[in-house]
Amino acid sequence: MLFTPTVVKNLLKKPATRKYPFEVREPFPKYRGELVIDIDRCIFCSSCERKCPSQCIAVDRDKGTWQCDPYACIYCGYCVDVCPVKCLSMKDVHRKPSTEKTEWIEQGTPPRHKKKETPKDAAPKGTAPVLDKSAAAAEEAAPAATEVAPEAKAEERPAAKDKKKDEKKGKK
């Protein structure tokens, strides 16, 4: 008899829990769920690599690769704060559990050093196809990153860079 009001209340109330896999709560917008990189905007400055507390990021400036060990990442978001071009961001949904260990390597276009440009300029036709390949590889690695057709984009960018180079040459 003592518990009748409580029992009636509890029968009419909604449960406090959710049926998780079928019913998922809306994520909070600021949640640090998964690190994502827009590799096309990355300038390979290695700021994230230096700042990372768990040393899970490896940036290779010459090859144009950005590598992250997702199992070492602690999702602190320091790299997002430090990135000068804001190409790193945090998705508000965390990664689903997986049965295999995966590697996460992003291939982008390495920036050209001012000093290194001079020898490469001798054979501009030779460098262009290499860049095409690397950009295409980046598209393959992250197919959902952009909707632009890979070939069109790959052709566009080196051309634009060549133009800039020509301008610089002219100034010299």
């Binding site: 909070f28 600021k30 949640y31 999702y75 602190c76 978001g77």
Partner: peptide, 10 residues
């Protein structure tokens, strides 16, 4: 919601 993580708010 405010800090981005449930436990390690960082």
């Amino acid at each position: 919601a405010t800090a981005g993580s449930r436990v390690i708010v960082s």
